[in-house]
Simulated assay, not measured.
Amino acid sequence: MATAAKGLKHKTMASAAAEEIRNRILAGDYAPGFQLRQDGLAEDLGMSRIPIREALVQLESEGLLKILPHRGAIVVQLTPDEIEELFNMRLLLEPFLFRRSVPRLTRDDLKALHQIQTRYAASIDELDIDVWNELNTEFHLTLYKHARSPRVFLTVQSLLVECDRYTRIQLSTIRGDRGRAVAEHAELLRLCEHGAFEEGARLMREHIDHIRRGLTTMHSRDEVAEALEG
């Protein structure tokens, strides 16, 4: 029992380290190209190198880091083509999950979605970037929770994490897109409640594609790289 408890504590520490490092990456504290060393992170977070190493491996699997021999972990900077690929994968997978899941949404699910939407709109008004990205992910994953496609769901969950820092740049930079995001979430929820599932799936695709096109335009002006560095 003692060994199992020790293993659980160790796993919890690794998860906590991964969450903290992930948050710093998404917030821009660790910019693309920034080198993360286990010794420095262990000292900073007050834990041994073992959970730090496991946390870095986890974040590499999420696409946020690249672990290089003799260099430690490097925060990933995606190219325009890679960002395009991420959003193209979302365009394929999220409408699929939407169609499979939303007919199974319960009253409690719809109530939760309304609560998320209310908090999401408030976070947009308050320009609380960290909160609105967290609620955006929660909104999408709640819509997809009954899809009964666990592998696809986990893939989309990972894609949302990878897209997070780019989505926040778009919403932070383009004022009109903030209101559009709130309105589209509200309309998606209305369509779910009225059983308009195919129309909802089309709107979901348009919702994601608008972000993709906005980021592509920003990249053409080199604004994404400047915003990340800033």
Rank of each mutant, 00 (worst) to 15 (best):
G7M: 13
L8D: 10
H10Q: 15
H10F: 12
K11A: 15
K11N: 09
A14H: 02
A16G: 02
E19F: 04
E20M: 05
R22S: 13
N23H: 07
N23I: 00
R24L: 05
R24S: 07
R24T: 00
I25P: 03
Y30I: 05
P32F: 04
F34A: 15
F34V: 02
L36E: 07
R37D: 07
Q38Y: 02
D39T: 09
L41E: 06
A42D: 04
A42N: 04
A42C: 03
D44Q: 14
G46N: 09
I50R: 12
P51I: 09
R53A: 12
S61I: 01
S61V: 00
S61G: 04
L65F: 04
P69N: 06
A73S: 09
I74Q: 10
I74E: 11
I74P: 00
V76K: 12
Q77K: 12
L78N: 02
T79F: 03
D81P: 00
E82Q: 15
E84M: 00
E85T: 08
N88F: 01
R90N: 01
L91K: 05
L92Q: 09
R99G: 02
S101A: 14
L105D: 07
L105R: 06
T106G: 03
T106A: 06
D109P: 05
L110N: 00
L110W: 02
A112P: 00
L113Y: 06
Q115G: 13
Q117R: 10
I124P: 05
E126Y: 07
L127Q: 10
L127G: 02
I129N: 04
T137E: 15
E138Q: 15
H140W: 00
Y144F: 15
Y144S: 07
H146R: 14
S149P: 01
S149D: 14
P150E: 05
R151H: 13
T155M: 14
T155P: 00
E162D: 05
R165N: 10
Y166C: 10
T167C: 06
R168N: 13
Q170C: 11
L171W: 14
S172N: 11
R175P: 08
R175V: 12
G179K: 08
A181V: 06
V182T: 12
E184A: 13
A186S: 13
E187W: 08
L191T: 10
C192D: 11
D209M: 09
R213P: 01
L215E: 06
M218L: 15
D222L: 06
D222N: 14
V224K: 05
V224G: 04
E226P: 00
